[in-house]
Design a protein around this nucleic acid. Sequence first.
DNA 1: AGCTCTTATGAATCATTGA
DNA 2: GTCAATGATTCATAAGAGC
Lengths: 298, 298
Amino acid sequence: MAKKDVRKYKIKTGVVHQGNAAILLKNKSKFPDESVDLIITSPPYADKRKKFYGSVHPSEYVDWFLPIGKELLRILKPNGSFVLNIKEHARNGERETYVIELILALKKQGWFWVEEYCWYKKNSYPGKWPNRFRDSWERCLHFTKERSFKMYQNAVKVPIGDWASKRFKSMSEKDFNRHISSTNGTLGRNVSNWLNRKKVYPHNVVVFEEEHYVSNVLEFATVCTNKNHSAVFPLELPTWFFKLFTRKGDVVLDPFIGSGTTAYAALAMGRRFIGVELNEEYVNQVNKQIELMSGVPN
Amino acid sequence: MAKKDVRKYKIKTGVVHQGNAAILLKNKSKFPDESVDLIITSPPYADKRKKFYGSVHPSEYVDWFLPIGKELLRILKPNGSFVLNIKEHARNGERETYVIELILALKKQGWFWVEEYCWYKKNSYPGKWPNRFRDSWERCLHFTKERSFKMYQNAVKVPIGDWASKRFKSMSEKDFNRHISSTNGTLGRNVSNWLNRKKVYPHNVVVFEEEHYVSNVLEFATVCTNKNHSAVFPLELPTWFFKLFTRKGDVVLDPFIGSGTTAYAALAMGRRFIGVELNEEYVNQVNKQIELMSGVPN
DNA sequence: AGCTCTTATGAATCATTGA
DNA sequence: GTCAATGATTCATAAGAGC
């Protein structure tokens, strides 16, 4: 069955489809079986205020998501990955439980819960409450279809451990160069040791030095640094997971693509993308912008 | 009922009781109702290897913990907090689910799930696997009995400074260091080193704290307090929660105190502690060390 | 003292082997 | 089949030696 679809339909990338993900993802000509290498998304959060865009009541969140999860399971390639960026809200002094309930439900649906990456947002929303601090981290839940899957760890290697970067953080660029150029200084020797050190693998806490967000100002698709937090995640987040779970030319899907961060990151990284978004303004804006950036829609 | 117990029994602190937490915590003379300001612990993790010390099978973990949770709910003061440091293992390519199931079960038991703090362990265990990176963070789950509870947010903004010397009123800090260094074992030396480090590099620590301690992500490196028995968490972890949820003289309980990190942190911070531990060696070692450090057992 | 370098070792996980 | 034990892999620290 799956193989028939793979032959019958070919996925068309480079476009954001307008519509309800739960309905649209069922379309096998747009979303053939086993046609996507990576799904990455930050779905609308549950919210008690029904009026809020895309909001779902916490008590209905799991039931709302499961039909989508089922289609994603169908669309993903057997060796692909599904990265779900989400964080439960605090309400009435407590954290909501819909996210951890969703993990259990997705497992029951057939997904492997491989890992929970922690995205550590150093510049999170300001705020002060009597019972909690600022929410500075989000879950990036990693699910797969099979126990074995594609993972390109070398692509995200970091050059050095924290101990060394801290050590040289207080040093100015001038000092740094001076020390490197000095031939007899012990620190110079140390620096060269550091430069020669092998790259190391990162761990499951993801921290970005700078975060670049796609502005949701509808008239212009602009990218800014740490100023506009209304986008769900910064370009760095999908970029990192693209490197980790895909190669150039692979297909990535974001069923809640919003202002298009996943699309722009995919373009920049040489991945083919396909998106779904309910909001027409977002859809039009992103498609227009993508066309301008890529010349001809593929 | 509760009030009767509060009057009838007075909690005796400064000691680690040897025994099974599930049984021992039922003892109302040792653990009266509403007698503890903060419970902080890192329970034995679930493990499939039955022989392993303190291990519980993942499938039995929730059922194993709930009777303990019930007693903790009884023992905690209404405005107190319960901090549970835990992280599920990865096994056969997946994360275990017993921790998130425990959250749901504890809520059903009557606990409020206020927050999930993320402890970012910079020096995590090494290793390389085809499907995951090293595990560098753990959950610090914050539960309470009531929606409103004691929280001293200002206390964690204050640098550590000179708390160590203030604590030991009958002893100068030099005496203290000499005293615990003269006792057997590496433990005293390690605690001493830690105290000295705080003293020697206050500025770095202050910057470090101010940068990170205003959010729900905590950055600590794990340190070994003892060569034979590794501490499950560093002194910084209970110390930080002591400051946040208790004041001097308050009573803190660790039902799985292990090598005694909670006790040493409590002593240093001027909190009264009470502990439970199954392993006799741990119990004897900690009680002996505590007696030496505090002069007279209280 | 201060620093540099070496060595040991951890609440780990997976693939493999054997019972 | 299921379960248990072993080896390979990896890096941030502490501790100690040497200059």
